[in-house]
Design a protein around this nucleic acid. Structure first.
Length: 499
DNA sequence: AGTGCCGGGAC
DNA sequence: GTCCCGGCACT
């Protein structure tokens, strides 16, 4: 994936906010709406609609991002001297900090405003060249406060518009170590800033006021919710233990493997879907009543274990259900699909916590499945976004309709099917339907240790009575065999429409 | 006959 | 371990 061209596209077309040296000025000076300087010698501005990419000096073989990096855009900036808007033309450097040959004539710091992705597409903090050289957060020449603000702004601009509480689940997160550190710093700053009452009362769409000074006040809200809390996607993997007792949503582990199985051709489509989820779904309450505590419930079939920390739950799932090594902290994020977050009224908590499956009326239960969100008008978290790509086949409308029709408890059915997919080995070329998330073996079928003995078990030697439920063959027909659950395809007991 | 899926085999 | 399929039980 090459995020940069898209970044530019969006930035250019959607009034992307940037920082640029004030006209005729190179010295630093407050010029942002609230008076805080975005960076030394830079002014805030908005890319106007009349962007005109220049011919790229690069050879034809150069990437589009390179071409984009040389584009000249008309930028509306606040002139610090006259405090009036001016139209300027600036040569843009691409967001990754690669200076274009034309970089000498313009120093733009792009503050990405892509609403769709908090995921690994954001730009490393140290990669934004200012005044001709890369500026790193650790740069001693940069005042600490500016560092923090810059980091906060970067996070802000990478956060989705309108919905600080809506968390996208990234399909892929691969952050450089440096970038990760910068994230942590920025997240810490934002966290501290997010305690402002202004933040908590922000209207979801407050961000639309691009040029309004208020937008800056909202920075903490937007980015903090994205970076340090309410993230079910795992975009922001920093999940300090101290955070676990706070009413934050789980911070899923880095997922760097899962995306490997995704069809490249689906990438862009999935991204759009992701963005949609981001904008319209997955609300996770940022603020919870003091009387409630966030718990994490294992959704694994017949498990239902409830833990108080996301990391604990992930470990539980990873070790107990996924059969992975406990000592491996590395996770591909798959665990995210198997637990949900519960807002539990602390008062109702009892000793038997592990056996509880409390569901508070105010609970925000993240759909264990991305596609399910579309079926839920009520705010529910991504899961994935949850990773929408985790179940590409379910994104098919017809499929969804069928599922929702024949499976009142869609989650259960999907989970079951999902579970059986764990038996899949990656992808047989002929069967696109195989492109499903790799999921652990279904506990019921394998007699997982964690499965309670109460699990109904057909007497050995006797055939399981045929169920009443329609099976994949009937539902989808032979012609849509690729839509069958794996079990059905293998002539095994159907795992999607279980009886 | 059509379907569900067990049991076993190939890989 | 995954994946497939013969063949039996059931409708």
């Amino acid at each position: 994936m090459e995020p940069k061209p898209r970044l530019f596209k969006r930035l250019a077309s959607s009034g992307g906010r940037i920082c640029s040296p004030p006209p005729g000025l190179t010295s630093a000076g407050p010029c942002c709406p609230d008076g805080s300087p975005p960076a030394p010698g830079l002014c805030c501005g908005v890319i106007s609609a009349s962007c005109k990419p220049l011919a790229s000096p690069y050879p034809p073989s150069s990437s589009s991002s390179e071409a984009a990096s040389n584009a000249v855009y008309t930028v509306l900036v606040e002139d610090p001297a006259s405090i009036r808007r001016r139209s300027r033309r600036r040569s843009c450097e691409d967001g990754a900090g690669r200076s274009s040959p034309a970089g000498s004539k313009g120093r733009l710091q792009l503050l990405q405003k892509s609403p769709a992705h908090c995921s690994g597409k954001w730009l490393p903090a140290e990669a934004e060249p200012i005044n001709g050289r890369p500026r790193h957060l650790s740069d001693p020449l940069v005042p600490k406060r500016l560092e923090d603000e810059a980091a906060a702004l970067r996070l802000l601009d990478q956060a989705p518009l309108h919905h600080s509480a809506y968390i996208p689940v990234p399909r892929q997160r691969k952050l450089s170590e440096k970038a990760g550190i910068d994230e942590v710093i920025a997240a810490a700053v934002l966290t501290s800033l997010s305690t402002s009452p202004v933040v908590l009362n922000n209207p979801p769409n407050g961000f639309s006021a691009e040029t309004n000074g208020d937008v800056w006040k909202e920075v903490p809200a937007m980015s903090s919710s994205c970076s340090s809390s309410s993230n079910n996607s795992g975009d922001w993997s920093w999940d300090p233990p101290s955070d676990l007792s706070t009413p934050s949503t789980p911070s899923p582990p880095l997922s760097t493997e899962a995306p490997a199985s995704f069809l490249p051709s689906l990438q862009s489509e999935l991204e759009e879907t992701e963005a949609t989820h981001f904008l319209f779904g997955d609300p996770i309450p940022r603020k919870r009543k003091n009387s409630t505590k966030v718990m994490f419930k294992c959704l694994w079939k017949n498990c239902g274990k409830v833990l108080s920390s996301s990391s604990g739950m992930q470990k539980h799932i990873r070790t107990i259900h996924l059969g992975r090594k406990a000592d491996l902290d590395q996770s591909d994020g798959e665990e995210d699909f198997y637990y949900t977050e519960l807002d539990v009224n602390v008062d109702s908590l009892t000793d038997g916590l592990s056996s509880l499956t409390p569901v508070s009326p105010t609970s925000s239960v993240p759909p264990a499945f991305p596609a399910l969100e579309e079926l839920q008008p009520a705010p529910g978290p991504p899961s994935f976004s949850p990773d929408i790509s985790a179940a590409p086949h379910l994104s098919q409308p017809t499929h969804m309709a069928i599922l929702s029709q024949s499976a009142p408890t869609s989650v259960c059915h999907i989970q079951a099917d999902h579970a059986y997919q764990g038996c899949l080995t990656p992808i047989r070329p002929a069967d696109i339907g195989e492109k499903r998330p790799q999921v652990p073996p279904v506990p019921a079928a394998k007699g997982h240790p964690s499965v309670p003995s109460s699990m109904p078990k057909p007497a050995t030697g006797t055939r399981k009575p045929r169920g009443e439920a329609k099976k994949c063959r009937k539902v989808y027909g032979m012609e849509n065999r690729n839509m069958w659950c794996t079990a059905c395809r293998w002539k095994k007991a159907c795992q999607r429409f279980v009886d």
